[in-house]
Every structure is written in C-alpha cells, then in structure tokens.
C-alpha cells in the first residue's frame, strides 16, 4: 500500500491534486469555523491556522516547487546534450505517468535506431573483413616482402612487415580489452610506418614511470585506443607544422585510474575549435555526432571516447587541451583494471 502510495507520489500531477484537495479542505474548514463562530473569543486558534497555512506553503515548496525545478534542470541537461534519454527518465520525480510512458517509448525507439545502425555497421565491417580475407592479405604482404628482399629493397621489406603486423593486430584480434603493452606495441608499429613518410620530422617519446611501469604495462585498456589518438596527433598536429615535431605518451597509474596523456608540439587549435571538439566529445546526441563526424575531424577521438563511456561509464573519458602554435594534449582517463571486463 505504502509502496503504491510512494509510486503515485512520483508524479508531480498527483502531488498537485493532493495539494489542491488539502488546500480545498482547509478552506472549507476555515469557512465552517468562521460561519459557526467557534473561533470567536479563542485567541489561540488564529495563530494555529496561520501555522497550518505556513506548513501548507512549506509542503508545497518541498513537494511541488523543488521537484519541479529539479525536473526542469534535468530537461535542461538533456536539451544541452549532457545526459542521455535513459538517464533523464531515471529521475525520482516525473510530471505524469503518460510522460513516463512517452519517455520510455522514445528511449526504446532511440535504442532501436541505434541498434539498427550498429548492426548495419557491424554487417559492413564483417563484409569488409570477409572481402579482405586476412590470410590472403598476410600471404600477399609476405610475398611482397620476399620480392623486396630479393631485389635488395630493405626499406620496402621492413615497411611491408610492419604493415602486416599492424593489420594482424587491427583486423584479426577480436578482444575488447587488451594490455597496454600490446596497445603500445601497435603504436610503435604505426609510428614506424609513419616515419617512412615523415622521416626525421616526427619523434615519439614514451615517458615511463619506472617504479610502476611493469604494472602499468599489464593494465587492460580498450583495443585501438592509443593508436587513433597518436594518429590524430601526427595528422592534425605535427603534419601541419613547419619543422620537426614530437609526440609524447605519458602514462600514470593511480589507485583507481589509468591516466594516458598524448601530447604533441604541433600547430594546436584555436579556442573556439577546442570548445567545439570537447563539446562533441561529451555530447549525448548520437545524431549530432553522426552528422558532424563525417564532415569534421576528430572522428577517431569521438569514437574512442564513446567506447570508453560504454565500457566504463560516464565518469571516465577523454578531454582535449590545446593552444594555437603550442600543441595539443589528449587526456584519457580509464579505470585501472587487470582482469578482462565484459562490456
């Protein structure tokens, strides 16, 4: 009974009905007392009535106005893209049962669209994987490598080997979480491939916390997290810069978190672009992300951030710091885990 009562009070409209009914009852009692003349000559009654009225108003503030404001703020957060539809419908108070049903309906429609989109992308990915046929790809690359070695083209042979290693990690392995060591190895491979293009113009430094390094290397992070950030730093930071540039990867582990900072001393970005990029990283509007990501840069960062949010929750994620002509730092915060987690 109490539970049902509590459930009914979840809706502001029910609270409003109850409040109006009590107010009406109070009015009727007041009129009755005034008509019958009971209050005449009894001084204590009037302060008592004022006290009851004050309690009514305080109750109205606590049970109606405050929850209404909270609900309003929640809507505002949703409209600004800070929270998802699912989070919004998880509030303690709602306007009416119809509104709750509508929100659930909207959420399920949204999920259906998202699932459809996800399965479409998954199907495309599988089709691509089948088309590529990894064994055929690796055999071909191995063939090119042998030909290059025979012809004395050592650079070409090394490059082909690196490319095969890169694809083996990217395409063939299906784990969600990998060790940081594997992810760093993939970064080195990618970097070496890029060095064939940029020569001595690009440098990579990994800052090691010697005491913790062994533990850090065994921490698990989502697969293909570091390489897209590194790629972003090279393509959008260093490539556009005159002269040499350095990308520094710094990894720190605290009691609860693994903090990965990838910084470059490239061209950086202006204040407005940075603001937009960080807003995109934190926005919950899937459509917004989709429509913008195809046209603008930073798709990789948004994807990595989405995966981190999905796997570990909203408290973790990515933030970008940047300054024009100084460089960019991408900071990724994820929980420090060693065991494989199921998403």
């Amino acid at each position: 009974m109490g539970d049902r009562m509590g459930k009914n009070q979840k809706y502001l409209v029910n609270r409003l009905y109850l409040f109006c009914a009590l107010l009406f009852l109070f009015g009727v009692v007041m009129i009755f007392l005034a008509e019958t003349g009971i209050v005449q000559g009894r001084r204590a009654v009037i302060p008592g009535l004022f006290l009851i009225l004050a309690l009514f108003l305080a109750g109205g503030y606590r049970w109606l106005y405050r929850p209404y404001r909270m609900l309003n703020e929640q809507f505002s957060r949703f409209a600004d893209g800070y929270i998802s539809l699912e989070e919004m419908s998880r509030t303690d108070v709602l306007l009416s049962p119809e509104m709750e049903r509508s929100l659930k309906q909207l959420d399920s429609m949204n999920n259906a669209t998202r699932n459809l989109d996800l399965s479409k992308r998954q199907a495309q990915y599988r089709a691509l994987q089948n088309q590529i046929n990894p064994h055929f790809l690796y055999n071909t690359l191995e063939g090119i490598r042998s030909e290059a070695l025979i012809a004395g083209l050592d650079n070409l042979a090394d490059m082909t080997e690196l490319l095969a290693t890169f694809f083996r990690y990217t395409i063939s392995r299906n784990e969600t979480l990998v060790t940081l060591e594997e992810e760093l190895d993939n970064c080195y491979t990618y970097f070496k491939i890029q060095q064939y293009r940029f020569g001595s113009r690009i440098h990579l430094e990994v800052l090691k916390d010697e005491e913790e390094w062994n533990t850090i290397l065994h921490c698990r992070i989502p697969k293909l997290t570091l390489q897209p950030i590194l790629e972003n730093s090279i393509i959008h930071g260093i490539e556009l810069k005159m002269g040499e540039g350095t990308v520094t990867i710094e990894i720190t582990r605290t009691e609860s978190r693994l903090l990965i900072r990838v910084r470059d001393d490239g061209v950086g970005m202006d204040h407005r672009t940075l603001e937009e990029l960080n807003a995109r990283l934190d926005s919950k509007e899937e459509e917004y992300r989709e429509s913008h990501s195809r046209e603008e840069g930073g798709v990789a960062l948004v994807n990595v951030n989405n995966r981190v949010h999905l796997l570990f929750g909203e408290e973790y994620g990515m933030h970008v710091y940047s300054m024009e002509n100084t460089g960019t730092t991408v900071e990724l915060s994820i929980p420090a885990v060693r065991e494989q987690r199921k998403p």
Binding site: E212, T254, S256, R257, E315, G317
Partner: peptide
C-alpha cells in the same frame, strides 16, 4: 598490485559545468 608506491591523484575535475541563476559560469 605489487608493493610499489602508487601515485595519488589529489584533485580531479571531470567536465565540470557550473551554473548560477541560469547562467553558465564554468563550462566543461
């Protein structure tokens, strides 16, 4: 993990947005 001294993160502000009187003061 192990017995080495771990770093402690003393402060972290994560995407803090603070509003007062419907005006956004701190943003992300």
């Amino acid at each position: 993990y192990g017995g080495s001294v771990m770093k402690t993160e003393i402060l972290r502000l994560e995407r803090v947005t603070y509003r007062r009187d419907n005006t956004t003061i701190l943003n992300n």
